[in-house]
Amino acid sequence: MYADKTLGGHFKEQLETIYDMRVVIWTNPVSNHLADGKLVIHKWRWVVERTISWLGNNRRLAKDYERTLLSARSFIWIAHIRRTIKRVFR
């Protein structure tokens, strides 16, 4: 998982131990920050923005209706499966 400096520290350690995932904290200038007067865009930002946009197209995921993390995660999986099926059978 790629994250910025705000997700470092204890939260990063929890993600790595509980979910057994590798967390990469970017310390370079993050997108929408000016470095030497030029706009710097993060290398993987478009992937994150595109994924959030796809999830936002689902009515159930447009707002935070879910009470549990399991149900929210399930609807995210369903949204990705639905999108993949639509793409395959076009």
Rank of each mutant, 00 (worst) to 15 (best):
M1V: 11
K5N: 10
K5P: 01
T6C: 06
G8Y: 07
G9Q: 01
H10I: 15
H10R: 15
H10S: 14
H10G: 04
F11Q: 09
F11S: 02
F11L: 15
K12C: 03
K12H: 07
E13C: 10
E13L: 15
E13A: 15
E13H: 13
E16T: 13
Y19G: 04
D20W: 03
D20N: 10
R22E: 14
V23Q: 09
V24L: 12
V24Y: 09
V24D: 08
W26L: 11
W26H: 13
W26C: 06
T27W: 11
N28Y: 11
N28P: 01
P29F: 03
V30N: 01
V30Y: 12
N32F: 12
A35Y: 15
D36R: 09
D36G: 09
G37K: 02
K38S: 09
K38T: 05
L39T: 14
H42L: 00
H42M: 07
H42D: 15
K43H: 05
W44V: 13
R45G: 12
W46P: 00
W46D: 14
V48L: 11
R50A: 06
R50M: 06
R50T: 12
T51M: 07
T51N: 00
T51G: 03
S53G: 11
S53Y: 01
S53Q: 04
W54H: 03
W54I: 08
W54Y: 06
W54K: 08
L55V: 03
L55Q: 10
L55T: 04
L55S: 08
L55M: 10
L55N: 06
G56R: 04
G56V: 06
N57D: 13
N58H: 15
R60D: 08
A62I: 09
A62T: 02
K63H: 14
K63S: 13
D64Q: 06
D64Y: 07
Y65A: 02
T68K: 05
T68Y: 00
L70T: 09
L70F: 06
A72C: 05
A72L: 12
A72E: 05
F75N: 04
I76G: 01
I76P: 02
W77A: 13
W77E: 12
A79I: 01
H80K: 05
I81P: 10
R83C: 02
T84L: 15
K86H: 13
K86I: 01
K86F: 11
R87G: 10
R87K: 15
F89R: 09
R90E: 09
R90M: 07
R90Y: 09
R90S: 08
